[in-house]
Write a protein that binds this DNA or RNA. Structure first.
Lengths: 318, 318
DNA sequence: CTGTTAGCGATACAAGTGTATTTTTTCCTT
DNA sequence: AAGGAAAAAATACACTTGTATCGCTAACAG
């Protein structure tokens, strides 16, 4: 019902608002008066412009705030690099901060033209990062999915994530047109072995950059909550020794895939291939994810880590 | 209170503030509490971070708001392009809006690598634009002064402008090490004819982009207020038919240099050479500048115009 | 030792902002 | 044409921000 609250949400209007507010520093009531609309409209419009990523705040050296944590992470886990943003300790979803940190990391690399193809999975973190990215036109770049998608139309579906990121960057994209999990191991193997899938997965494995996310086994994980096949529960996985997932594959505390059918029904780049990839970064934060992250970093599954200060402290604490 | 709190205006502190405020959306009091400083400090720090250009708001398609005005300016004055920002009609100095517009224009071109060298003069507008620019590293780029500088240490002195812009862009720069006006015509001619000056001016004339500003004859013009030689007054110039200046040279209502000694005592690229330059843009706004701008555009002294909506309307009104 | 001054913290307050609630308008249906 | 639903406007209010003011303290010169 409450679908289109702000009706006059044309880009032109929003750009006007943004200009008058952020560039000229006019007050919302002044703008409302000048444009002949209500202050409410202005207020909502400005919010909308930010939410849509039409205006972004860029920061000169965003990672200057946590230099020490970054250095200690690199040292401790033998990483190539680490980037840590500052979390809002009040809000319980650290996605905001990590998303922004991931975006700044991507901006750096994109400015250097460091990657010809980028592999992504899914999740709120990436979704947030996309919005914080500056729109570009990079027709040479290709965004590839590292993993299948869910059937249900979740907004952070892999298909959507790859498409949105590609659109933001003016790049091409390709996905793995399959569910994350097949009903049976046989079906998954058959599909993965077929020509087009084989080639697509290979393309994913050859991406210049892979952006990984991870989830734990709690209800806070979207994969656990909505993405698991009907016949598998989080309890099953915990009993089999899992602490969380990477690319839909469930890993134990040492970062090894657990011995459970679900790991053989998955469609995506196998975790075992990650160490051979060119550049793999893990973007994850939240106290509940600390064990999973530590497992994955310990197993050498990522070259770089992007997280927030709270998570970084916890990772270093043990 | 914690021990190692960075309580000065260090970049690290400001970046922390900016991150917590703009990325995490925390309130100023929350930030103050978390960092163990007073809210006042946070408030001022955030302002400082903006003023220093440490955080910038970028906007997706900044010139979408005034498409029609731009088209009409191009049509009316036979320009290659026009960019118009939205002025705050309350504030009487339009420098904010034009500065931002100029910055967006430069961002466009810099992203395309459109220029190998950029010529600048001086003024508040350019100063504002520099702060709104994203820092870069373009060691191949050279910023050159199109004009001499003032003796007094005005902060928008040409020398400073060229140096600041170059620093922001990570570029080299060179200036015309002379005052704008010499005491006598003979001195000016002698200097301009000397080898190093001759070469420097030639380099300026060959710049890929020239950014011009202009002033009228009122007290609002910094050149008139502080930059004129002691023996010349604005009244003299007005009597000689001047309506304003371009590169320190005073022009009449048709855009022709007036016949007055001051125009022969100036150190800089002669206005007459502008039409032969590759790309010349005039960045100027304000109702009081309308006659000068119109004169200059009428005489074909610029290929492009960067201004604000108020000025654009007035230019088109006549 | 004392008076002066610069700077910071505390307090206060006016203005600005984000959101919830109620009223009005508009437009569609019957 | 009347009734009803949905959108926009008006109203209200709690909270946030920016700035002015006062008073304390510490540094410093005489």
């Amino acid at each position: 019902m409450a679908s289109g609250i702000v009706s006059e949400d044309s880009e032109e209007f929003l750009v006007q608002l943004a200009w008058l507010y952020f560039v000229d520093g006019m007050t919302q009531s002044e703008i409302a008066e000048r444009l002949g609309v209500t202050r409410l409209r202005v207020n909502r419009g400005i919010g909308l412009a930010r939410a849509r990523g039409l205006v972004r705040v860029e920061m000169a050296s965003p990672f200057a705030a946590a230099l020490d944590l970054q250095a200690r992470l690199v040292e401790r886990f033998g990483l190539r690099f680490a980037r840590v943003g500052l979390a809002d300790r009040g809000a319980d979803d650290g996605h905001q901060a990590v998303g922004a940190a991931l975006a700044y990391f991507l901006e750096e690399g994109l400015a250097r033209n460091a990657w010809g193809s980028i592999g992504v999975s899914w999740g709120l973190t990436i979704e947030n990062a996309i919005r914080a990215l500056k729109p570009r036109s990079l027709p040479e770049l290709e965004v590839v999915s590292l993993i299948g998608g869910t059937v249900s139309g979740l907004r952070f579906n892999t298909f959507g994530v790859a498409a949105n990121l590609a659109q933001r960057l003016g790049a091409r994209h390709s996905v793995l047109p399959a569910p994350i999990y097949f009903e049976t191991q046989a079906m998954a193997e058959a599909v993965m072995a077929s020509r087009p899938f084989h080639e697509q997965i290979r393309k994913a494995e050859e991406a210049d950059l892979a952006i990984l996310v991870t989830g734990d086994l709690s209800d806070r994980s979207f994969l656990v909550r909505d993405g698991l096949p009907a016949d598998v529960t989080a309890e099953d996985l915990a009993r089999a020794g899992a602490v969380g997932d990477l690319l839909g594959q469930f890993l134990d505390a040492e970062g090894r895939p657990i011995d459970h059918p679900i790991n053989r029904r998955v469609v995506g780049v196998p975790v075992a291939r990650l160490p051979a990839m060119r550049e793999v970064v893990l973007a994850a934060a939240g106290p509940h994810k600390v064990p999973v992250i530590r497992a994955q970093l310990g197993a050498g599954l990522a070259h770089g880590l992007i997280t927030d200060d709270v998570t970084a402290e916890l990772l270093l604490a043990a």
